[in-house]
Design a protein around this nucleic acid. Structure first.
Lengths: 352, 352
DNA sequence: ATCGTTGAATTCAACGTGGCAATAGCTGTC
DNA sequence: GACAGCTATTGCCACGTTGAATTCAACGAT
């Protein structure tokens, strides 16, 4: 343990040059069968492992990409991170994960490369930083944004069409005949593009149905945990007029709201129809199961990595920044449809 | 972007040697205020960042530790990974995460260092491999095991006392007067130490209460997802005699079981008391909220890192392998106690 | 017999950094 | 005025690897 051997050691043992050992290890040049075998034996005997730090130094690349997300323990980011890690491995990349906890300074450090992490590229889901600041920050490496709003051609971005998706969710509630449709999840303190877009889609659907959006039905939250959803729901239920439907901007908020509904004896979906956003695993087993907007997370992961790969491996090919829209679909479950046994769902292709 | 400058470039610009720039960057030797300022300006102008690959090569350390877990998207591992990432950052370490998906070959590759990842140490939660194999595998780096069974002094290990914890959970059910107590989560196909220990604790509690454990009440599962818990619960409910209590070996299994209970019209906790294990966030907001065994995850993360740090920074100090037991407590919620408003909980210190 | 060709293995250098030892410059002392 | 005792700065080298260029031997063709 610890005492690692180098090409030189193997070379000495096999009676060849270090370069030849390198060739055997990488299969890069022609090596006679006889020599190859002798070298291979020396490698096995010494338990040689290539030193990746040296390779990285030589190659000028680390084979590592960073993933910066607010919180790993939130189900949505956990699922996404899992998909990204696997997709990265298929490309022989390693993923280092950083949690920003919604701290603007932490996000800035990652972007400027002052984080002390060696990486070839960064996938970041900004939380505290506005798209504008992200886009204008001088960056030493390729960056892909997840979510947020379009960075005006200054960085690649992958996201669902949040406005359309929120519109779909709200329209679904309206189609059930609900008229007092509340929204949980606004974040006016954050200039958070995602929340603003979902609010916009929500209002758009209301207006199309002839309903005037009212601040009274729009509940802000401090963060996106179940606790915040529960609190927002409590406020709604304490109001003078109770909603008959709620669109929560994330499934976690929705599950918190559902919990509060149970606590207050409000029946879902009879008294209150509920829609979430993210399609996390929990929502498939909650009581009742949760209707939700399901973004294609696998495609988000795949596309984000593809963007990075293009920038990293073809830096000379300076294509303009991409703004990729990933498909989403509304998955209808029991929280809006008591008759739902199996899932029903309607697919939507990206409009962008 | 991309064209990164080196110590040499900065040195040329500042009119000093590369070595002096290095001294400024690291504060390692005395540098006059005047020179320091000139160098600092050059650094800022060129946007110089130290090359970590070169530093790693020079230092023989990477500052990276690996975390190998079955699945990042499972809530328990998501929470644990989040804690580890943060704790590692406090120690200026970077964490690379690998998902093994319960694949023995993947676990073996990580242990032998054939995974193509450069790291100074590895924290692994083995799934498919037996403790014996993990312990006996020749390893090029320090390893800490999470969970599983004691590796006989051949590797550090951090875990709760699974037998005692399972006993606590089962005893709680028995104390409620339940007598037909089932267990969900055995994994006879896996030689999985964790499942076996929890089964042992479950049986121990039964016997102490004068009940003879019966295979009829012990339901095996293929994996630990909600789906598996739901299936196992369906089997129990289809049996000729229904249980009046269930101890699920993980919260995910418990939530799946809870879902199935709802579907079949079984009331929890009136008809069926339910206890899980892990204390994941979901269980605090499920309906009803979930009684569970809560391992001190923060301490698991902290201790695992401390073990690694000791091995990495003091390799000469060959202390025998540690087997650390972390405290757990039973958190009683509504799934066993309908009167529960706020949590009640009993703390247990480790016995080891 | 000579020369070009091919295949196999080697040497050299460089990636960017930091440990070590050496040097240059400067002050104060006898 | 020579010298020790500092301080500030420098040059050299090695970490382990691989690209590029080179050597060496064997072989077939002329």
């Amino acid at each position: 343990m610890r005492v690692s051997s180098s090409l030189k050691d193997v070379a000495a043992r096999a009676g060849v040059s270090a370069r030849t050992v390198s060739n055997v290890v990488n299969g890069s040049a022609r090596v006679s069968a006889q020599t190859r075998q002798r070298v291979q034996e020396a490698i096995d005997e010494l338990g040689y492992r290539p030193n990746l730090a040296a390779r990285n130094l030589r190659a000028g690349r680390t084979g590592v990409i960073g993933l910066a997300i607010p919180e790993l323990h939130s189900p949505y980011f956990g699922e996404l991170a899992g998909l990204l890690v696997d997709a990265a491995r298929r490309r022989s990349w390693t993923v280092v994960i950083d949690q920003t906890h919604g701290d603007a300074e932490a996000e800035r450090r990652l972007l400027t490369g002052d984080s002390g992490r060696a990486m070839d590229g960064l996938i970041i889901s900004p939380w505290a930083l506005e798209a504008q600041e992200v886009a204008s920050t001088a960056r030493p490496l390729p960056v892909v944004l997840l979510g947020e709003r379009s960075p005006q051609g200054l960085a690649d971005r992958v996201a669902v069409d949040n406005v359309a998706a929120a519109d779909d969710a709200t329209s679904h509630l309206l189609a059930l005949g609900r008229r007092r449709v509340a929204a949980i999840g606004l974040q006016p303190h954050l200039h958070n593009g995602t929340a603003e877009q979902r609010a916009e889609g929500y209002r758009r659907a209301l207006r199309r149905a002839g309903i005037t959006p009212s601040p009274r039905w729009e509940r802000p939250v401090a963060s996106l945990h179940r606790q915040d959803g529960a609190r927002a729901m409590a406020e709604l239920l304490d109001g003078e007029s109770r909603p008959d439907a709620v669109f929560a901007f994330t499934d976690e908020l929705a599950l918190g709201a559902l919990h509060m509904a149970h606590t207050r004896g409000v029946r879902v979906p009879e008294d209150l129809a509920l829609v979430g956003f993210d399609d996390i695993e929990d929502g498939r087993f909650s009581h009742p199961t949760l209707t939700t907007v399901s973004p294609d997370k696998g495609q988000i992961a795949e596309r984000a990595l593809q963007c990075l790969a293009d920038r990293i491996y073809s830096p000379e090919n300076q294509v303009p920044a991409l703004d990729l829209t990933v498909p989403h679909r509304l998955v209808v479950r029991a929280s809006t449809d008591p008759g739902t046994g199996a899932d029903r769902s309607a697919s939507h292709l990206p409009t962008g």
